[in-house]
Simulated assay, not measured.
Amino acid sequence: MKVSRNFDIGSYKDKYIKRRIAIRARATRCRTIDDYCELLFRNDGELDLLVKGLTIHVSQFFRNRSAFDKLEREILPVLFNRLRKEGRQSTTFWSVGCASGEEPYTLAMILAESFPAELKEFKVTLMATDINRDIIDVAKKGLYASDRLREVPDALRECYFAGAGERFCLRDDIRAMVDFAAADLFDSSSYVESDLVLCRNVLIYFERGEQERIIQRLANVLPTEGILVLGKAETLVGESRRRFTTVCPVERIYMKNRFSIY
C-alpha cells in the first residue's frame, strides 16, 4: 500500500483499518479478505477507493461551534497582541487534515468578520493541508451542499455564500485567503511553522505512539505561547503533555510552554 500510493496503514488503529477494509470488501462483493486483497493487486481503481475510504473527510463549517467562539473571543485577540509585543509583522495559522476546506474557510470568515484591522496590520497566512490530493482540489473550488452550512450564522451565510444550483459557492475573497497543499503528517518535512495549529479529529485514527509523535512534531513548529487545538475526543498523550499548558480543557486548546525542550 505505501509503495503504491505513499500511504502507510501501519500507524492507524487496527480496529479502524479492519472496519474500513471490511466495508470495501462488502461493497465489492468479495467473499473473503483474501479475495479482496487479490482485487487490490489487479485493480488500481479499487486501491484508490480504499485509500479514500481510509482517509475520512467528514466536516462542516463551524463544526463544534463553541471551539470557534473561543478562538474568536479569547484566543485570537491574545495571539495578535503577542505578535505586536514581539514586533512581528506576519503569522501563519495551519489547519491540519483540512478535508474539503470547511475548517480553514471558517477561520478565514472569522478573521474577515472580526479582525479586519489585524488583517491589515499583519500578513496572515492560512495554510490548510490534507493527505488526499483529490479532496484538496474539491476544497479549492469552495462549492458545498446545504448540509455543510447548517452551523453557519445566517448573517455570515448571506454575506459569504451565493447559491450555485443545488450548492453554495463561497465568496472568492474568502477562498483566496487560504493556501491548500497535500501533505502527510508522517513526513516531518511537511510541517508548517505556525502560531496557531488546528489539528481536530485527526489523531483519533492513529495508535497512541503515533499520536504522541505527531503532537511532538506540532510542538516543534509552534513558538513559545503558540496555540494547538485538538478535537473534542482527543487529548495530549505521553511526554507531549510536558510541552503544553492547558488553556481550555473543554475545547482542547493548549499553549506551548515557555520552557519546552524535546
Results as ranks from 00 to 15, higher is better:
1 M>S: 12
1 M>L: 07
2 K>E: 13
4 S>R: 11
4 S>A: 14
5 R>E: 09
6 N>C: 07
9 I>K: 09
10 G>R: 07
10 G>F: 03
10 G>V: 02
13 K>M: 04
13 K>F: 00
15 K>F: 09
16 Y>R: 07
17 I>V: 15
18 K>Q: 15
21 I>N: 04
23 I>S: 07
26 R>Y: 04
26 R>N: 12
26 R>H: 08
32 T>Q: 10
32 T>V: 03
36 Y>W: 06
37 C>D: 09
40 L>T: 11
41 F>Q: 14
41 F>T: 11
42 R>E: 09
43 N>I: 01
45 G>W: 00
46 E>W: 00
47 L>I: 05
47 L>P: 00
50 L>G: 12
50 L>D: 14
53 G>H: 08
56 I>N: 04
57 H>A: 13
58 V>Y: 03
62 F>G: 10
65 R>Y: 02
68 F>E: 02
70 K>M: 06
73 R>G: 04
74 E>F: 10
77 P>E: 03
78 V>N: 14
82 R>V: 00
86 E>M: 07
92 T>P: 01
92 T>V: 09
93 F>E: 01
94 W>T: 11
95 S>G: 11
97 G>D: 10
100 S>E: 08
100 S>M: 04
103 E>I: 01
105 Y>C: 00
108 A>P: 03
109 M>K: 00
109 M>H: 03
110 I>L: 15
113 E>H: 08
115 F>L: 10
117 A>R: 15
118 E>C: 04
119 L>V: 06
122 F>P: 12
122 F>S: 10
124 V>M: 04
125 T>D: 13
128 A>D: 12
129 T>W: 01
129 T>E: 09
131 I>C: 11
131 I>M: 12
135 I>P: 13
137 D>F: 02
139 A>Y: 01
140 K>G: 02
149 L>R: 14
153 P>A: 03
154 D>Y: 02
155 A>G: 05
156 L>I: 00
156 L>A: 03
157 R>I: 01
159 C>A: 15
160 Y>F: 13
161 F>N: 04
164 A>I: 00
165 G>Y: 08
166 E>N: 14
168 F>Q: 14
170 L>E: 14
170 L>W: 07
171 R>L: 01
171 R>V: 00
173 D>A: 13
175 R>K: 15
176 A>D: 15
177 M>R: 15
177 M>Q: 15
178 V>F: 04
179 D>E: 12
180 F>V: 11
183 A>D: 08
183 A>W: 03
185 L>A: 11
187 D>I: 02
188 S>M: 03
189 S>V: 11
194 S>V: 06
194 S>E: 10
197 V>D: 00
203 L>E: 14
206 F>L: 06
207 E>M: 09
210 E>V: 01
215 I>V: 12
216 Q>H: 03
217 R>M: 04
218 L>H: 02
220 N>F: 10
221 V>W: 02
222 L>I: 05
225 E>R: 13
227 I>G: 08
232 K>C: 05
234 E>R: 13
238 G>V: 11
239 E>R: 14
241 R>N: 07
242 R>M: 10
244 F>E: 12
245 T>H: 11
246 T>R: 07
246 T>W: 01
250 V>L: 15
251 E>D: 15
251 E>H: 14
258 R>M: 09
259 F>L: 10
261 I>A: 06
261 I>Q: 04
